[in-house]
Design a protein around this nucleic acid. Sequence first.
DNA 1: GCCCGCCTCCCCCGCCCGGGGGAGACGCTC
DNA 2: GAGCGTCTCCCCCGGGCGGGGGAGGCGGGC
Lengths: 220, 220
Amino acid sequence: MPVRVLLVDDEPLVRAGLRAVLEAQPDIEVAGEAADGAAVIPLVRQLRPDVVAMDVRMPLLDGIEATRALLRTVAEPPKILVVTTFENDEYVYEALRAGADGFLLKRARPAEIVHAVRLIAEGESLLFPASVRQLAAEYGEGRGNRAVRAELERARLTEREAEVLRLMARGLSNAEIAARLVVGTETVKSHVSAVLAKLGARDRTQAVITAYESGFVAPG
Amino acid sequence: MPVRVLLVDDEPLVRAGLRAVLEAQPDIEVAGEAADGAAVIPLVRQLRPDVVAMDVRMPLLDGIEATRALLRTVAEPPKILVVTTFENDEYVYEALRAGADGFLLKRARPAEIVHAVRLIAEGESLLFPASVRQLAAEYGEGRGNRAVRAELERARLTEREAEVLRLMARGLSNAEIAARLVVGTETVKSHVSAVLAKLGARDRTQAVITAYESGFVAPG
DNA sequence: GCCCGCCTCCCCCGCCCGGGGGAGACGCTC
DNA sequence: GAGCGTCTCCCCCGGGCGGGGGAGGCGGGC
C-alpha cells in the first residue's frame, strides 16, 4: 500500500511541484490538495492521508494553527511534514512545538523530499536538524519575542473578523456591515483593519480576492 | 512543432512544478533546467529554447543580469518570461526594462502559466495581452454562475475594460493599473467607471466579486 | 460626409476608506 | 488580582475612489 499524501500550500505551483516529485515514486500517492489551512480538517477526514505536507505561511489559517487544529480534532491524525521556504523561519519551531513531525525546505532536492516523506510515514521523526536545533536554542522555551507572536497572530482571524470578511466578500460597505451586525461603523472599521492586517491586504478588494483564492468563500 | 521552454529557478521544487504544468500540454516541451542565471547562456546556446522561464531572485546571477547578458550575447535570443513570487517586486520592472517579454506570478494557476508561455512564444507581450476575451472564455469555461456570466456577457465589456477588470481582480489600485497599462490614472478611472456601470457594481470590490462569481476569473 | 464606439485625458467634488492613535467592558487563564 | 484577547466605540486625517460632467483623436459603418 502506497503512502498517501495531502498537499497544503497556497501556491498552486508548489503543489504541482510536490505532486510531480512525489508521484514519480511508485510507493507514494498524492491523495489531494488544499490551498489553505482552513480546508485541511474536512479533507483529512475525507481522504485519510498518511502524511500532510503543510506549508507554514498561508493566508487564512497558517500551518501552525492548522496543525494544532488537526491534532486536536482528528482521532487518528496523519503525520505532519512542515514545508517552508526559509531556513530561519520563526514559524518552523512553533510548528514543530505544535506537534508537527518534521520539516523540509522547499529548496530541497527531489530525492530529499521523497526521503523525508518516506521517513515521516514510517513514524521516524525529522525533528531538530541542526538549523532547527539552533532555532530552539535561540528562542528558548516559552519566552517568545514580540515579533514572533505578532507574526503568529497575523493569519488567524477571530470569529467576528471572519464574519466581517464574509460580508465584505458579498460586496457590503462598512455601513452596511454595521447595520447587518447591529454595531457601530467604527467597530466595523476596526474589524476590517484587523482583517486587512492579518491577510496582508492593502484594501478590502485585496482581502476579498484572498478570500476567494483561499477557498474561504466560494463562487457560485 | 512544440514550444520549447528552458526553466531557470534555484528551487528544484519550482522547476518540477513548472515542468509538471507545462509538460501536461501537448504543444509545450521543457527543453532543460538551470538552477542559476549563471548557467543560462551556455544552456541557451546548446538547447535553443523558444522561451526562458526565468526566476528573478537567484543566488549567483539574478534574473535581471541573466536577461541582460542573454540579450547582449546571444544572436537570436529566446523570449524571456520572468517568474516571481512577489507582485510588487521592484526587480520585476527592472527585468522588464532589461528586455524581458513578460512576467508571471508563481501563485498563478496552471492555466495562466500555460497561457502565458503560449502568448510569449507567439511574440505577444504579457503586459498587453491582445485578446482578453479569449482569457475570459478559457477561464469561464464550465465554471461560474450562468446567470451572472450571462449578465457579464450582456454587459459587453470592451477589450480594454476587460483588461482593467482583470487587473482589478488581482488587487491593483487605479494608479498601479495605470502604470501597468502605461496610461494616465484618469484614463483608468474612466475604464473603471465604465466597468462598474456595466456590471451594476457600486465599487471595485463588487466588480471583482462579480468577476469571480461569473467565472471571468477563477480561484485556485 | 456623418455618426458612433472606443480609448484617451481633464475638471470639480463628495465621501467612503483605511491608518494612526486610544479606551472601556467582558471573559478567560494564570 | 493581573494579564491577555476580543469586541465595542471614539478621535483625527489624508488619500484614494467614484460620480458627473466634458473633450479630442481615430477607426469603422451608414
